[in-house]
């Protein structure tokens, strides 16, 4: 097996790595780039805890191979706040009490971010649909939707 070279943009920085190809994007981000906000909840694209934004679109990093991000632009939760300034969603998630155990939070915020980048004024139904790929087990959907709505208002 040959190593492969992957160059991509991670959280606004151009990065490259030489790595064995038999790893998932999730594993590469966590192990090689220390982006541990990317969580593995189910490992089969059901729970959304491993969500990252690829070219602005949410994708499950547990269902992608590392080599598939060659040339792509990725955003993980580590890259959301800019120069120490929290993103509006990070603020409203805290204020609305939308964070409990916190394991679904990174994916949840990124899915919400992707929605707001495309549609700055979504309806409650649009928010629900956009977050339908992110499971929360501590029963926080109401507060999570509220947090997204608070971010729209700001």
């Amino acid at each position: 097996m040959e190593k492969i070279k992957i160059a991509f943009n991670l959280n606004d920085q151009d990065v490259s790595i030489e790595t064995m190809p038999n790893k998932r994007l999730l594993d590469m981000l966590r192990e090689d780039f220390n982006c541990t906000s990317v969580k593995e909840g189910c490992g089969e694209g059901e729970c959304g805890a491993c969500t990252v934004l690829r070219n602005g679109e949410p994708v499950t990093s547990c269902t992608m191979l590392a080599g598939q991000v060659q040339g792509e632009r990725l955003l993980t939760l580590e890259g959301l706040s800019k120069n120490g300034e929290l993103d509006i969603l990070q603020k409203t998630f805290m204020e609305a009490g939308a964070v409990q155990c916190g394991f679904c939070t990174p994916g949840m915020i990124l899915s919400a971010k992707a929605l707001l980048m495309k549609n700055p004024h979504p309806s409650r139904d649009e928010i629900r649909r956009a977050l339908s790929g992110n499971l929360c087990r501590c029963t926080g959907y109401t507060k999570i939707f509220k947090a997204v709505e608070m971010a729209i208002e700001e």
Partner: peptide, 21 residues
């Protein structure tokens, strides 16, 4: 009062460390 959880900031930043991290 509605108070912000002590651990909320580290969680929205993705810095909270779970066992696998």
């Amino acid at each position: 009062q509605s108070v912000i959880r002590k651990d909320a900031l580290s969680k929205v930043l993705g810095e909270a460390k779970f066992a696998a991290d």
